[in-house]
Simulated assay, not measured.
Amino acid sequence: MEYSIVKLVHLLGVILFMGNIIVSALWKIQADKTGNPVVIAFACRLVNMTDLAFTAFGAALIIVGGIGLFHATGIAISDAPHLTIGISLFGMAAVLWLVGLLPLQLYMSRIATQTAAKGQDVMPAAYDKCRKLWGLVGFIATALPLGALYFMIFR
């Protein structure tokens, strides 16, 4: 029973985490394509909200479920190099999100909100520069957990 519960928690976390990072990126990319500061500000606000609600919560469930699976199965991490690789990739994604994506998202949200509040029709160059960096860092931060998922499933 314990194994099934922690596996459910772990998988629910993966679904919330992976689903949100992919869907949020798509929302924001589509909003950026409009060039409309009001739409962009709204999308930035949603990305920040859903990151807290789903990405962070999903990551917490992944961690709790993963630790629970270690206890339930009795697997030693030294006996499972695929788990070490998966955990490392997940950890690298977390660091990128905390030190790269999150500060960029908050800054871009502030720029977009101020631009929309001033009634301007064009996003400033600073936003575009951040948007490009966010796209690059976000691609890497999405590829890392996809790699972790691969190692967790296919060993």
Rank of each mutant, 00 (worst) to 15 (best):
I111A: 05
R45F: 08
S109E: 14
L11T: 11
M49A: 14
A80H: 12
F57G: 00
R110M: 11
F151L: 07
I77A: 00
Y150N: 02
M49H: 13
A31N: 12
G68I: 05
W27V: 10
V9F: 00
F151S: 02
L106P: 02
L96W: 05
P37I: 00
G68R: 06
V122N: 14
L11S: 10
I40H: 11
R110L: 10
G35R: 05
I111W: 07
L52V: 09
Y107S: 15
A125K: 15
H10Y: 04
L101V: 13
L83A: 03
G13W: 01
M152V: 05
F139H: 04
A25S: 13
N48I: 10
F70V: 00
L104I: 11
I63M: 06
K129V: 10
G135H: 07
L89W: 07
A72F: 05
L102Q: 13
K7E: 06
P81V: 02
A53S: 07
L83W: 05
L133F: 04
L12P: 04
I87V: 13
V23D: 07
H71V: 01
M108Y: 12
N48E: 12
F54R: 07
M123N: 09
F151G: 01
W27E: 09
A143W: 06
S24G: 15
L144K: 07
P145M: 01
T142W: 04
V47F: 14
A94V: 06
G13D: 01
I22C: 07
F154W: 03
A125V: 14
L101N: 14
A41N: 07
V14N: 04
G66A: 04
N36T: 01
D128T: 13
G147M: 05
M152E: 01
M152G: 01
A117S: 12
L133W: 10
I29V: 15
A126E: 14
L144R: 06
I22Q: 09
T113N: 10
I85Q: 08
G35V: 04
K28H: 14
G100N: 09
T50F: 12
F139G: 15
L12M: 12
P81M: 03
S4I: 08
I62L: 04
V95H: 07
A143V: 15
L16E: 03
R131I: 00
F17A: 06
L12C: 10
V14K: 03
M1D: 13
T142Q: 04
W97I: 11
I153P: 03
L106V: 12
N20C: 12
A53N: 02
G100M: 07
R110E: 14
H82N: 15
G135K: 08
L83I: 03
W134R: 09
P124K: 09
I111P: 08
L136S: 06
L69V: 00
S4Y: 12
I29E: 13
L83V: 02
K129C: 02
Q114H: 11
I62R: 00
G86S: 11
F57W: 06
F17Q: 03
A94S: 08
L101H: 10
L146I: 14
A117G: 06
V137R: 09
G86I: 00
F42R: 15
Q114I: 00
D128M: 12
F42K: 15
G100W: 10
